[in-house]
Nucleic acid binder design. Structure first.
Lengths: 216, 216
DNA sequence: AGGTGTGAATTATTTCACAGCG
DNA sequence: CGCTGTGAAATAATTCACACCT
């Protein structure tokens, strides 16, 4: 398969969600323009993205919704269940475990690890917390496809090094640092602090368009 | 002000964190290469990014750490406190309110709103939950600079429309949909489901021993 | 008509390479 | 010398435009 840009893949997720919504409303077809509107992009972008993977549309009609849903799920690898380990039983971990969408899309968080022995053995959102010393063994035993790193920044690189050495090839990182992983390991970052700082930058640097003018 | 790419701004956040860490270790200067290593980028990228805003380095030496920290904080608008409203008192909201980094960087979450009257009036992570019908009034009263949208997907566009109409110009969205905002309003998205699907795609397409680079 | 698929053009971003300064 | 700052070159991503299908 040729190289696919990660922005294209990110948009496929958005298309899939819009298509699934349309499918529940029994919409039969959707044009690239309608799909684009639901994803804040352009019709040309939608067609280009989809054309990377094949030809799914009918000229003059648009894209058949149920078929394209199935295609996108197959392309994204969502037809199987991925076993996910959460490393770090803190608040972010709690939010993730409560995120029903994950299970619906085929991600099964069925292992929770923490380095804090006070947490080990306790139940956390319905999951028993295991000591993080078992991490390597769990990965080696084939229990885990994806590791979610939700530990403090200073511990994150160590955790990712360990799970990668044990065989994990996909990592979602919530620590506010850029982690180094070897080639062949997929890494995505969720950096809320950086997003907020991006908003701060925008507010601090936007020209004053006199939106709310005070009365004289 | 000249246009600055959002990837550059995102990297400034990373540089700032590395510089702050270096500052606490009393490191006096850092070269673009050292800075790059801490942020998984290249020396040239660091220099290009910083050159957008001025000349901060000393040739032969590198960048003075405390000075560059101050400059970046000023550039990112982090020298003032931004008042943040959390809309949606669910698990993601709980994770955010417990995120100490936010306050440290000048983001003060001091208003929490929810549409569920069962939650209104209760205390949520130390904050009294207010009815979401007060949202517009709070924005109009100048209480709020940034809105964090942590409501279900189907309610998100309505919430953002309301806060934008009331005057908010920066929004952080956790709902797994692309929101539409008028020009002049900054919008950042945190879409954990899409990130996971990106990992799923990488795993599903890396079975073959092909050369596949790690994404970010 | 109405809307896809796609090369070509455009625009954005990253990398290179090196002059020049401390 | 070492390392920055920066034009120029190389890549990547997006948008345009239109042939072509149903």
């Amino acid at each position: 398969m040729k190289k696919v840009s990660s922005s294209t893949v990110a948009r496929l997720s958005l298309y899939l969600r819009v298509l699934e919504d349309a499918a529940t409303d029994d919409v039969r077809t959707l044009s690239s323009g309608e799909l684009a509107k639901g994803c804040a992009t352009t019709a040309a972008q939608v067609r280009k993205d989809l054309s990377v993977f094949g030809t799914f549309g009918k000229r003059g009609t648009g894209y058949p919704v149920p078929e394209l849903v199935a295609q996108l799920r197959a392309i994204l690898g969502l037809e199987r269940t991925w076993r996910v380990a959460l490393v770090g039983a803190g608040r972010i971990g709690a939010a993730l475990l409560g995120y029903a969408d994950f299970r619906r899309q085929g991600f099964l968080i069925d292992a929770v690890f923490d380095a804090d022995d006070a947490k080990v053995g306790r139940t956390f959102q319905g999951h028993r917390v295991r000591t993080d010393r078992e991490l390597e063994a769990a990965v080696a035993a084939g229990e885990i496809d994806i590791a979610i790193v939700a530990v403090p920044a200073e511990a994150a690189q160590d955790v990712v090094d360990r799970v990668v050495a044990a065989g994990v090839r996909a990592v979602l990182n919530f620590a506010p640092v850029k982690l180094r992983v070897p080639a062949g390991v997929a890494l995505k970052n969720v950096n809320m602090a950086a997003e907020m700082e991006g908003l701060s930058f925008a507010l601090a640097n936007q020209e004053r368009p006199a939106r709310r003018r005070a009365a004289c």
